[in-house]
């Protein structure tokens, strides 16, 4: 375990996961955004449904956009959401 991190979900990702956010403690080998997404997807159910097409998923770590190689760890706020459509 690398410690608890806060996950938040928006738009259809929130609907498919079935909650707006949660605190999770992924296994120790989950140290990057990419690994986190794969691990979450493997949890099945709403996660698998929400993350089946990762090209439609954007990630922010501590409110800054982050790519698959970006590090994640304890106490981080990791947000998952679709491409933005404001303006």
């Amino acid at each position: 375990m690398i410690g608890a991190m806060k996950l938040v979900y928006f738009a259809w990702l929130r609907e498919r996961v079935g909650k707006a956010g949660e605190t999770l403690s992924p296994p120790a080998n989950v140290t990057t955004v990419g690994a986190l997404l794969e691990w979450l997807k493997g949890q099945g159910g709403g996660y698998a449904e929400a993350l089946k097409d990762l090209s439609a998923v954007r990630v922010a770590v501590n409110q800054e956009y982050a790519g698959p190689e970006a590090k994640v760890g304890a106490n981080d706020e990791v947000a998952l959401f679709p491409p933005v459509t404001g303006g």
């Binding site: 738009a11 922010a60 933005v84 303006g87």
Partner: peptide, 26 residues
């Protein structure tokens, strides 16, 4: 500013019409 905020600011539009609700695609 308008071009950049449309692609970077974290907002999502949910449209409601006669066919129900749907998320606007980027």
């Amino acid at each position: 500013l308008v071009d950049w905020l449309k692609t970077k600011a974290p907002f999502w539009k949910l449209e409601a019409g006669p066919a129900g609700q749907s998320w606007v695609e980027a």
